[in-house]
Simulated scan of single mutants.
Amino acid sequence: MRRAAVVGTGSIAAAHAEALRAVGERVELVAVVDVDADRATAFAREWGVPRTHPTPAALLDAEDLDLVHVCTPPRHHVPLALDCLAAGVNVLVEKPPAMSLSEVDALIAAERRSAGRVATVFQHRFGPAALRLRRLVAEGVLGRSFVAKCDTLWYRGDAYFEVPWRGTWDSEGGGPTMGHGIHQFDLLLSVLGPWREIRAVAARQARDVQTEDVSMALVTFADGTVASVVNSLLSPRETSELRFDFERATVEVEHLYGYTDAHWTITPAPGHEDVAARWREGRSGIVSGHRCQVEALLDALDEGAPPPVALADTRITMEFIAALYASAFTGTVVKAGQIGPENPFYATMEGIGAPWATAR
């Protein structure tokens, strides 16, 4: 049985604890860490965790661990992951995995020197429907990809941003592009493959924050697919939607924070009704939550394989985010590979600064 720990016992930590419990005897949650000792104790009591530790350093010193789940506010993700790698421990880090592309590259360099590996929580990749979609794309069942859209239209009022680390570049790394829409467009990228260039806008429309509260992008992929991506925290009717228009069918999903097969639809093109039958094979009621990714991660550890959503995959999504901000803040088209160490958007997603910063 593998031994796991959770660092940070805020709201998302419960999803990790639930996923670990759900996989049964494959893994045991042996310890938790939180800066708030009372909160750590309450979490440990709720989830039957035998030990708490005051700091990550104390955790790594006292426990023999296979896996650490990093569930802290975003600015702590990379320092904690680096500590785990230095100790040779595998890490599953919540989104956003890092504050910048440069931090991702620091993790990649540290991972090369470590026995540990880093995986990012992008759980929507692991729902049965997403797995089936990628398989059908790879097998050529759906034909060429033409058009796609990805909308994360959520609502977060002023009270949400009263938490000190929210809505700031230093603590959160960005707005809905970094912390909310990232799940949907990561799934988009996992289906459509490499992107080629991006044209974007970002705005601070209503919330008194440093970051954007809405962003929009037009994306061209390496295979010629064109896609729109919208990330909003200003949308009272909340929805998460993805649509893929292939040569032989349109495949769509509408959900909010997690989907089952019931949230997906397929509309065959005329003359390709057989595609719908292929889609319906292996239908499932499993929710695209953390459990699916934790199971896949444990499988990889058992097989000695790279973890699902390894740093190479994570970098693609983080480069997309950096390019979106760069395009939005400079008013230019940004191409894949353009954000290097000499680029201001490499070290921070804020880059040259948001256009509205001088108005604060």
Rank of each mutant, 00 (worst) to 15 (best):
L187N: 02
I12R: 02
D261P: 03
F146K: 09
W195V: 06
P79Y: 10
H16T: 04
A203W: 12
A159C: 03
A357Y: 03
A4Y: 10
M1Y: 05
L65A: 02
E254F: 13
P50D: 06
A206F: 01
S215Q: 01
R75Y: 12
L142E: 02
E103W: 08
S100K: 14
V275M: 02
V333Y: 02
E197C: 08
F185E: 04
R125I: 08
A203P: 06
W165C: 09
R144L: 13
F161R: 00
P128S: 03
V141S: 06
G175T: 01
V191H: 07
S102I: 07
Y257K: 02
T225Y: 14
D208A: 13
A328I: 03
R21I: 09
F185V: 05
A110Q: 06
A19C: 08
L218K: 13
L218S: 10
Y325I: 03
A305V: 12
I12F: 15
R156V: 01
V191Q: 12
V214S: 11
A359W: 12
A14Q: 06
D245K: 10
T332D: 15
T260M: 05
G88C: 15
G258T: 13
V78N: 10
A130D: 11
E94G: 11
T250N: 01
A22M: 00
S171T: 08
G143T: 10
W195R: 07
P355E: 12
V32D: 00
T332F: 04
T225W: 10
P50M: 09
D245R: 12
L142S: 02
V147P: 00
V287Q: 15
E28G: 14
P194E: 10
T211E: 00
H263F: 05
I286K: 06
A203Q: 15
P54R: 10
R237Q: 03
G181T: 11
V209T: 08
P236I: 04
W195E: 07
L301R: 02
Q123L: 05
A322H: 00
S327A: 14
C71S: 06
S171G: 04
